[in-house]
Design a protein around this nucleic acid. Structure first.
Lengths: 345, 345
DNA sequence: CTGAAAGCGCTTACAG
DNA sequence: CTGAAAGCGCTTACAG
């Protein structure tokens, strides 16, 4: 069954069949009905390749999940519990617009070459990247080529020029850090330590700023010795917490991510400090482990579901309207209170 | 960049460029190298639609996850923890063969129409179905149309003729039931009750047979009053367990799925029977809840990872070789011992 | 409102 | 070994 046969059966030309299928306005209702009837009767569906070769968008977007094992950044999307949630959301939202989703997982550069190929060969009309490191060269290449791309959870500031041509969806690091610090203050804590993230990354800087802002608003002096540098790894959290706990009356630590917060829990164990009895600890990200570690970690949950929806809808809009005015979206992290935080003594 | 430009640059014809790309044997090494060089230099990737329109397989398979809320069968694949595991496996295995995976989720008939469309319009070269009810009319239609299809976890016997034209991957219900019954016997239980699944479904029949076989081998009389019919719902498990526990010295119950095993736990609670102290309970499926209910349920885990691999590799093989000799694959369920089983008193 | 025709970018018999 | 040409099944100016 192809459009010629349908045309013959309906007594019109291929052009008209095509017009009906593509919902052109200048087809009389009667003709349209006649054609539609034949189409339905023969269960005809126009060939996707032919349509796309003839210039139609193929209505497939790619979801590319970057899962490099070497990743040491503050991003945590590839952990399995987010995977399915985020993927389902992208698929569901795409479906609303008649789009299908091709899901790819890349864990090395070879995989990335394959992903680039599906952009270049037009298998997909655009793509959503999640996970991976900031400013990935491969992603930058694709953006520069003019492909429609949404990037979830990567630091945009480093390559301002390039990333202006993409959709960026990020968590509001500043507000998250600000809110959780306010929460610690509300528990009565006054001597709060902060373990920073990698300050080369925007997330590290913003989380530090949010922390400071909350203290300022509470009229609490920001002491340098209450701020230790970390780099998002658990070990850096352990060392930083050791220093923090050595010489002052700190009753709470806000670590810029969960890995470092977990390192801090271990530091507290070494010193026989009860958490949360003697020391409150809070993180950022809500990685899977945070739920299972004892005490379960109070942290900030990154709303990947919301981010998936924003990325998908905006990407599809950009494709459908050939819209080049890309945007930068920010979503709020939500405080998740578990067992590692308690009132100050 | 298209094949004509590449041809020009390499000083050959489009035909030759195509031959190089498609690895024809009758191209001299020298020519090949020359063409390859130009291709690499200009980062050329042949248009996927054009290739597929010209007769090439587009190397995309569909993974269709059926997630109908009304499902009451013994199948449990759509629960989220399997979703990501199964999906990753399909994607990883497909990648090995140069295939990409389009993931679709269907939860109603409208969705299914969209799925059928991507078969008919050749967006995908084949598909793997997981979840859903046995003998779904939509799946049968697609198989009858001659599309390459793998069905995971659906009962094949009901439509023998149709399903012979598809790849079937199922868990070995008989052996699973046999093994777990042997395990109960090894704990010293002699009076073991069985709550059957839906005996209209092959899984229900096979699980019952496996149960009986183990008892026979142990020379234990199979008493009718030790076997109660269920239909895979939690409530049917509750009622069946009540009857089972009323009038005889049963010390263990093997329910044909986890839902019914959970119903049995509730029946034991009603009767103030300690599980596993006074009553051992075992299920089949290892649904997510089984890990969290107290006591955590001893059951049989369906190895979806293995099933994903089998389905993917065989489907792609069928596509690549245009092989019509479809097969029926069976994998073993693995016993997962948790807290609901213990030695007989 | 509608048809004939060109064109999308490939692959593959066909002929040499 | 290799090129010219047909063909895959659509869409869309173009002309009427």
């Amino acid at each position: 069954m192809n459009s010629i046969e349908i045309a013959k059966l309906a007594g019109v030309s291929r052009s008209t069949v095509s017009r009906v299928i593509n919902n052109y306005t200048n087809v009389p209702e009667e003709t349209k009905l006649k054609v539609l009837e034949v189409i339905k009767k023969y269960n005809y569906v126009p060939d996707a390749s032919a349509r796309s070769l003839a210039g139609k968008n193929n209505k497939i977007i790619g979801l590319i999940i970057i899962d490099t094992k070497t990743e040491s950044s503050g991003h945590i999307v590839s952990s399995s519990s987010y995977f399915s949630q985020f993927t389902s959301l992208v698929i569901d939202n795409a479906k609303k617009f008649g789009y299908n989703v091709l899901v790819s997982m890349v864990s090395n550069d070879r995989d990335f070459q394959d992903v680039k190929a599906i952009f270049y060969n037009k298998t997909i009309a655009g793509g959503i990247f999640i996970g991976g490191n900031d400013s990935d060269k491969n992603i930058i290449e694709l953006i520069e080529q003019g492909f429609k791309i949404a990037v979830v959870g990567q630091d945009p500031q480093r390559n301002t020029d390039v990333f202006k041509k993409a959709i960026l969806v990020n968590v509001d690091d500043f507000t998250g850090a600000y809110e959780i610090t306010k929460y610690l203050l509300s528990l009565g804590h006054r001597n709060i330590g902060h373990i920073t993230g990698d300050l080369q990354q925007l997330s590290g800087i913003k989380r530090l700023e949010g922390f400071k802002k909350a203290l300022e608003e509470a009229n609490i002096e920001i002491k340098d010795k209450y701020i230790e540098k970390g780099n998002y790894t658990e070990f850096s959290g352990l060392s930083a917490a050791r220093k923090l706990l050595k010489n002052n009356g700190i009753t709470a630590i806000f670590a810029a991510n969960d890995n470092m917060a977990i390192g801090s829990i271990h530091a507290a164990e070494e010193l026989n400090l009860d958490v949360p009895g003697r020391l409150t600890i809070a993180g950022f990200d809500d990685i899977e482990l945070s739920r299972y570690i004892r005490p379960a970690l109070t942290t900030l949950r990154v709303p990947f579901d919301e981010m998936g929806e924003i990325a998908t809808c905006n990407l599809i809009h950009a494709i459908d309207e050939d819209d080049k005015s890309f945007n930068n979206y920010s979503v709020d992290a939500r405080i998740v209170i578990r067992d590692s935080s308690d009132k100050a003594l």
